[in-house]
Amino acid sequence: MAKWGMVIDLDKCTGCQACTTACAMENNTLPGESWQDVLFYHEGEYPSGQMKWLPRPCMQCEKPSCVYVCPTRATYKDESAGGIVFVDWNKCIGCKYCMIACPYGVRFYSDEKPLIEPDMRDIYPGQNKQLWSPPYQNPKEDWSRGIGIQPPGVVSKCTFCYHKVSQAPEGTVDFDEDNPAVKEYVPACVRTCAPKARYFGDLDVPESQVNQLIGDKHGVRLKDHTGNKPQVYYLGAGAAVPAFTPADKGDKS
């Protein structure tokens, strides 16, 4: 059985947000409902001030705290789907406990104030129980895995593009967008990444590219102290997220 993992090389990532856009297009998310996002930080002061950035999908944790807290099993980790953590929109009661329990802030409850005006939900009002119904929609829809456009009152999140990954030929280990045989099955964010900073593959196969990269280039997991054990690894400098400092306080270190 596969265990899907993602590797993001921060030395290559330019922070261009192409992944964020590709994800929004692929999954028809609302503005602000960024299942994949690039976060920017600054740390320190002149002369050693730094600008840092960090793409952030759902980490599909090995020990997903979001799953443990969900009272209805709407959020579940599907080992038979490579360990992807899904939200079953038929079961979610919208209690938002999972959003409290996820240390990475990658869950979205779209019944909130719109990020930008005009509100897309007013322009394309929801039909067939959807929260909103834009004219173009990805035809892939599976509410039991949180794929498609959600109904109101549920939580949504990154699915590692399961609707693509699951179509790959049995035994696919490396999802390389340059390989014509598999490129259609590569998660949208990985496929679109211009500097090829993202890799996707099977963590259960020792020779997989993701495993090699993690081993050779010192892959780290974010916020490892939480014990959630992400299936997303980061390479290169910059994977350390600075401690929170309110903007008006500056960095006194």
Binding site: M99, G105, R107, D111, E112, K113, P114, R121, G153
Partner: peptide, 12 residues
């Protein structure tokens, strides 16, 4: 809907 709340995905 719950968009009439001032909560958000960041502060649910």
């Amino acid at each position: 809907g719950h968009a009439s709340f001032n909560t958000s995905s960041a502060l649910p």
